[in-house]
């Protein structure tokens, strides 16, 4: 007898499990009145310094906390702990991105009480985080002026998941011969509707616009 081949319909989204967890997290954040902001960038774009400055700015106005992802070490958590706000490190091991389940687990046994704004710092990577929803309400993609104006064209997929683009380290723009209008045009070519902020967490330039944007989005959400 020759083998019979049959066709079985599946129609299942591969990341269904991640999306289910992410949706549950988003609902939970909404209910508890927490606004969740994630930061995504290449390694070294300045996410941690931006987060440090952001936490310092918010810590006296509202209750903030942060989860930071890295493959190894708790260097970022220890550095951010100096701000005095609750920080937790997620070590992903060999995994190159955060997944919704990692966020859920990190939050599950973390008794920090109600939080107004929770920050998630993803693993430094502009590729893989594009595939994983974390349940955040605002995703900011950070490019630094030292990375070149064409970075948005090289990593377009992540921009399609973003709510905001940040050009960081603008205090180094002149030294890096950064062409601001070319960078903005490249961002617009990929996502014409994406708000763009330029800032330096080191000098504080542009920080106020970033903090205001978070406050505004939070007011719309909560």
């Amino acid at each position: 007898m020759t083998p019979q081949t049959r066709l079985v319909e599946v129609r299942t989204r591969v990341l269904k499990q991640n999306d289910v967890v992410a949706r549950a997290l988003r609902e939970r954040f909404q209910e508890s009145g927490s606004f969740v902001v994630s930061l995504v960038s290449s390694p070294g774009a300045g996410k941690t310094l931006l987060l440090e400055a952001t936490l310092r700015a918010f810590r006296d106005r509202c209750r903030v906390a942060a989860l930071v992802g890295d493959l190894e070490t708790d260097n970022d958590a220890r550095r951010l702990a100096r701000t005095g706000v609750p920080i937790r490190q997620i070590n992903t091991g060999t995994v190159c991105h955060l997944e919704a389940e990692m966020v859920r687990q990190a939050l599950s046994d973390w008794s920090i009480g109600p939080i107004d704004i929770l920050f998630l710092e993803n693993v430094g990577n502009l590729v893989c985080p594009a595939t994983y929803d974390l349940g955040e309400q605002l995703r900011a993609v950070v490019f630094s002026v030292t990375e070149g104006e064409d970075k948005p064209l090289k990593y377009p997929t992540i921009l399609h998941t973003a709510d905001l683009a940040i050009i960081s380290k603008i205090d180094l723009a002149a030294a890096a011969e950064f062409d601001r209008s070319a960078a903005r045009a490249n961002l617009r070519a990929v996502r014409h509707d994406l708000p763009i902020l330029e800032l330096s967490a080191k000098t504080g330039a542009g920080m106020e616009a970033w903090l205001t944007l978070i406050e505004k989005r939070r007011a719309m959400c909560v």
Partner: peptide, 9 residues
């Protein structure tokens, strides 16, 4: 990103 069908013998 979706598994659509399987062919099974």
């Amino acid at each position: 990103l979706e598994v659509t069908t399987l062919e099974i013998e």
